[in-house]
Design a binder for these strands. Sequence first.
RNA 1: GGCCCCAUCGUCUAGCCCGGCCUAGGACGCCGCCCUCUCAAGGCGGAAACGCGGGUUCGAAUCCCGCUGGGGCCA
Length: 480
Amino acid sequence: MTDPCRVRFAPSPTGDLHVGGARTALYNWLFARHHDGVYFLRIEDTDVERSTAEAADAIVKSLQWLGLEWDEGPYRQAERLALYREYAERLLDAGKAYPCVCTPEELEERRKAAMAAGRSPRYDGRCRDRHSKPEKPWALRLKVQEVGMTVVKDLIHGEVRFDNAELDDFILVRSDGLPTYNFAVVVDDALMHVTHVIRGDDHLSNTPKQVQVYRALDFPLPEFAHVPMILGPDRTRLSKRHGATSVLAYRDLGYLPEALVNYLVRLGWSHGDQEIFSRDELVHYFDLARVGHTPAVFDQAKLDWLNGHYLRGADPKRLADLLVAFWLKAEVPADEIEAAAARWSSLGSARTFGEAVVQTFGERSKTLWELAQASRFLFRVAIDYDVRAREKCLRPETQRHLRDVSTRIRSVIRFDAATLEKLYRDFVAERGLKLGDVAQPTRVALTGRTVSPPLFHVMELLGREICLKRLEAMWQQKND
RNA sequence: GGCCCCAUCGUCUAGCCCGGCCUAGGACGCCGCCCUCUCAAGGCGGAAACGCGGGUUCGAAUCCCGCUGGGGCCA
């Protein structure tokens, strides 16, 4: 019986959780669940300049929304500073690290000089033989192994070799007493018994440095797995320039968490030709060995397709609950939403108004936001008419049709889709018209547009009163 | 600049590790047709890729080298 694996997601709270980070979290989570291991969250907030509590909060919210619950934590590096100090002290005592009194300004100057002379801008090691703590402010540098190679065994990339001569004595603890990323991450991963470090490709180049820290501290090495990054459509690192990139932004745009998860997991991982995966299937099939090597471009069109797929399959009740917030955002007054719902329920339908809307508009929408906008005309709000379509409705002949059909609508007993459809079909049959001759103008009068969900369902949703009012406005309109 | 990673349709990818089954498969998107009260959804069909150059081999998308291109890290 081997010990269970332990993995972590360790974001810096310097901004919203973007889709790249979310995928890293997802892969960690799936790996842990697949292997019955432990997945935990660690907030890397030692960079006090850039870290904020709001960002940490947004990350936690994002992860919760995606359903990536953690078993431990969140741990916070800011609360563990004493630990880093303790291990720094050990390295200093053991002579494996040394105090450096070079100031950032001096280093910058030397760096420039080196560049100008065509040399690489590495630290020149001038404080290397210093042992005692100086009076002046100092930073702690690791005395790195200068010869040989550091080989990183990566579960995705295989063995990656780095020449130790390329490494310089990098800083472990800054002069302000705060640990650098490469130091804190090693101390934490080792102390927290992380068995598999699964993170973005951008950290692969940092790994040989971290390996040196593991060795200096006599910590056992974890396994590493560096997953390729997610790029924008222009093939550069994803950033705000690319529009929506944060998990919360997608939530607010009306995407479903299961759609985003499904999209993200397939970006860089595959299981044959399968595109749609349930949560259980993902846990069952997920395997780091099947994670690709190539950076992936984020394609919103495919996310849209997946979201549409999940929207169609989702429980109408759940969607209806979520929809309200999007209607409000589409500037539908709250009391209009209530009025429509009350009117609907007085009709005695088994479904609620929201559920009925979801069922007729859902399969035509990619997102809840789209659904809310497309169904906006169901309320007593100002409708923006398609100008050209409206002009066609104002032809005398068409206005007559609308007027005559209105008369029948007014007197029909049951106001439901089936009855209305029969009414329209009888009407056009009697007059030798095609259904579209009357249905299309009706659609325009009621919705403002030439496209909508099936007309008779729309009418049922709208209710007799609003239908007659909008129809009347259309056939009474003077065509000047 | 140095180092590291990567390279199959526009995009995500299967195939590559263990060469022949690949006249390169699937999905999104796109185009066409069917269904149809419009639009979706669904069904059917189509256009669309092994970056380039050298090897190795009877045979390479698959192995090796170089180039080119892209990305990242260092500061």
